[in-house]
């Protein structure tokens, strides 16, 4: 099988996580922000799988499955919120929600 230094895998996870974070920071569209959050969760799961593969244990993959569950729950609620936001305010701009009161 392959021999890959564990740093390279962690590097990939770090770069993907940073790109997701940059996406959350520079975008103002709710759908893009949700996509960036997905990228970040995926990168975190990648880190778990790399660590589990490094130690030869199945725990990393189990953590990835839990992250997957959490991501799907988060994205369903987040997209429902995006639909509701669009129906009420006719925009996906997150700045428009800052005027929301109680």
């Amino acid at each position: 099988m392959a021999t890959i230094p564990v740093e390279y895998g962690l590097f990939l996870a770090i770069i993907l996580f940073s790109l997701g974070l940059v996406g959350v920071l520079i975008r103002r569209n709710v759908v893009f922000i949700l996509l960036s959050v997905e990228i970040m969760l995926n990168a975190a799961g990648l880190g778990f799988v790399i660590a589990g593969s490094h130690w030869g244990q199945a725990d990393g993959q189990i953590m990835f499955i839990f992250i997957l569950t959490m991501a799907s729950a988060e994205v369903s609620v987040g997209l429902a919120l995006a639909i509701q936001l669009y129906h009420r305010l006719k925009t996906l701009d997150t700045n428009s929600i800052s005027k929301m009161r109680g």
Partner: peptide, 29 residues
């Protein structure tokens, strides 16, 4: 990448759930 790291089960889940289900949810929305 998951497959090359020796995690075929998680690679299949990534394709089925992430690329299959979650992205389809985004497309529907």
């Amino acid at each position: 990448v998951f497959y090359t790291l020796g995690a075929p089960f998680v690679a299949a889940l990534e394709v089925i759930i992430y690329a299959g289900a979650i992205m389809v949810l985004f497309v529907f929305v």
